[in-house]
Every structure is written in C-alpha cells, then in structure tokens.
Design a protein around this nucleic acid. Sequence first.
DNA 1: AGGGGGTTACGTACACCGTACGTATGTCCG
DNA 2: CGGACATACGTACGGTGTACGTAACCCCCT
Lengths: 215, 215
Amino acid sequence: MPTEPLSRGRIVATAIDLIEREGADAVSMRRIAAELGVGVMSLYNHVPNKDALLNGVAEAVLSEIEFTDDPGAHWTERVRMQARAFRQIAHDHPRSTMVVVSRQLHSTAGLLPVERALATLRGAGFDGADAVRMLRMFIAYIVGSLLREVGVTPTFAPVHNRLVKAEGVDPALFPEVHSLAPLLDQCDHEAEFEFGLELLIQAIEVHVARREGTR
Amino acid sequence: MPTEPLSRGRIVATAIDLIEREGADAVSMRRIAAELGVGVMSLYNHVPNKDALLNGVAEAVLSEIEFTDDPGAHWTERVRMQARAFRQIAHDHPRSTMVVVSRQLHSTAGLLPVERALATLRGAGFDGADAVRMLRMFIAYIVGSLLREVGVTPTFAPVHNRLVKAEGVDPALFPEVHSLAPLLDQCDHEAEFEFGLELLIQAIEVHVARREGTR
DNA sequence: AGGGGGTTACGTACACCGTACGTATGTCCG
DNA sequence: CGGACATACGTACGGTGTACGTAACCCCCT
C-alpha cells in the first residue's frame, strides 16, 4: 500500500503541527521530513525553500479563521467580530502566531481579512483615508495584543516564580512595579483584549460624533 | 599598541551595529567576532551565549531612549511623551526593534519604562488595576505600530512595485483593496502613530469622564 | 508492446551555525 | 621567582538550509 503522496499541503500541515507541539525553533527541513518519514530533499519538490514553507504556514493558519460577518449589524459590532475572529488565531495556533503576523502575504488568504475590514469601515461611512487609518490602528492593537498573549512580548510580570516575586524587584527603584506586582503577575488575555477593543471602538465613535458636530 | 580589550559592552555595540547594517539574520557569533577582529570563542569570556547577547542588545537599545518627563504636565501629555520616546526606538534602531520587543527583560533597563508609565497613570488617578490595563493597552498599540513601521508586519500595500500595482490584486475579488491601493501603498508612520495615540488617549478621557459621571 | 519524457524521491556534499572543551598567553600577587 | 587566575583562541561536534546528481516511477505516444 503506497503511503499518501507528499504534497505541499501535507508538508505545511506537518509544519504547523510541529510548531504547535515544539515551537517555531524546532522547525527544520530535516525535522519535518523525519516527521513525514521522508527524505529531506523530497520536500523541495513541493516547496521552493523554507521561507516559502513558512509563508504557507501563515496562509493556512490565516485561512482557518472564521469570519461570521453579519452585514446587517452595526459597524461597531462587525468590527468587534472581526477583531475577535483574528484573535482566535492565538487560541487555535498560539505558537504559530508570530509566524503569521511577521509575514506579509500578498496572497488571497492574506488580503481577505483586509478586504473585509475595509468593506465594513467603508460601509460605516468612513472615507478611504479614514478607513485605512482605522484599519492600521486596529491591526496594530490586535497584533500587539496577540504577541503579548502568546508570550512573545512581556506581560510585565516582574518574575515568573511567585515565591521569588517579593525579592525579584527592588521596591526602592521600582515602587509602582513592586506594589502592583500581584496585578502585573496575572493577565486575563481575553479581558485585556476586550477592554482595549471597546475603548478603540468608542474612541472612533466619539471621533465621528465630533466631526459631524463641526460639519 | 594593544587593541582595546574585549568587553561585553563592545560586543553588544558591535552586534547592534551589525544588525542595523545587515539585519538581525546576519548576526552570528562568528560574524561578530570577525567584525571585532577576534576569535569566535573569545566572545564567550564576556557573554554566556547568543541569547544573552541579544538580551544585551535589547537592554542597550532600550536604555538609550530618552524620557523627558515633566511631572507638572497633564497626564495625557506625559503619556504622549512616553509613547513617542518609545517609538524613537524604531527611528534610532529600526532593525533591532524586533529584537527589543520580543525579549522580556527583568533588568533595570526593561523595567524602567514600565515603572514610569505606571507612575504617571497612577498619578492621573487610576487605580492599580486600571493603570495596568491602560499600560498593557498602550504597549500593545505601540508594539504593533513599531512592527509595522519597521516592516515586520505589513502596511497592506498590495504590492511594492507601483507599476505592477494595478495588476497585482484582482478588482473582482478585492474591490476595496483595489480601489484603496493608492492609500494602502503609502504609510506616513508618524502620522499613523499619532492618530492612534490621540484616539487612545481621548478614549481614556471619555472613559474616566463617564465613570465620574456615574459616581 | 516498447520506448521516452517528466515528475517525484532521495543521498551526498558544502558552507554556515552555536558552543563544549582544551590549551596557550599574559598579568598580578604572594 | 612561582603560582594562580583571567583572557584569548583553535579544534571539533552536531545541527542548519539547500545545490546538485541520480534513480525510480508513471503515463503517453508511437
């Protein structure tokens, strides 16, 4: 019985699996080949190089996110839903998240979320320049949040080990960090994300209200 | 004339220089040693391993940023200044930026900005939980913005080459991306950063105003 | 049926990486 | 003067991405 033939899809899937199990550093062409029970160079029949493979990983993860858009809803709700859909990446593929956000894709998978976001912002009445600005602002916030959530960027827990905590930071040098250590130590990622998201949406509503007022 | 003796500081400085000249991928122990006209293993007398070296890079870059804090100013202005000071990293060391934000430092250099930010937020009257939330929100936005500015994350220019632009994205599939291509193609990083920053600050002001109203 | 071309799998080889280990060469102190 | 110690360095090992050459297979055309 011949084994399932090698294919770009199987290679990418194996890479994602490997990243999630052992982290992005564990990914090597040799490792993936071994995982597939295949010679290293066989991979190059389906993927031009490692970089393209990682692009494939990013596209695959990105195209998994489910946008359940309700065109009838208020634009604020639609923005919320899209932001949450994007954050879903961090849940479903935490260790691939950095790979996803650090690769600019010109493919369909990469452009689709952008298209959707622009469409809802335009639908909300923003002109092109504003829509692009808002998009970029949301993306910046979301990317920053995801990186914190998956541990690339710090939550500012002064130390990980609770036992050493009191000793870990000098109260004289860092009084605030020291006194807020219990709060810095824990981070409810969903709550933090929602907090900032609401703030941004409200900010935009205020922004448009002011503009309409001066019109 | 004996050459300047090797030291952790000289090694870190060389690494930063190399990153800025040739990118983070160009950094290798061998390359740095060659740059210093020194044997590879000599580096290990001053730096335990490459990871620690990169931590050193992050600390050095971080401790270069100049916080000119005016304790008398309104907290909104102080937050603005701190955010801008942080963004200065992207200007002074664009290609090191990713290294800086992707490393959590428990050293003085890493904690100082956090301490300052928490202090001004507390000074603005926020309780600990709110101060931490705000800090995390600002950091997420700033990190996301910096990554866009230094090119880690896309600006969503559909293609780089202007000439291919019209052909690069299918108008039928991506009508918004296509029609907004001219706007997506260019990105005034400072303006975008300031736009989001003001929005966030205003949002917080509204947030507190509402709370005071219900108190 | 036989042959030929294109696709796929694979082994070998090269240049580079981080770094463990052993060894020289100073420099300073007793 | 002798010995201890820090620093510089060479060699070597196991890892990396991938260029190249070769062998097996399948399908189509004669």
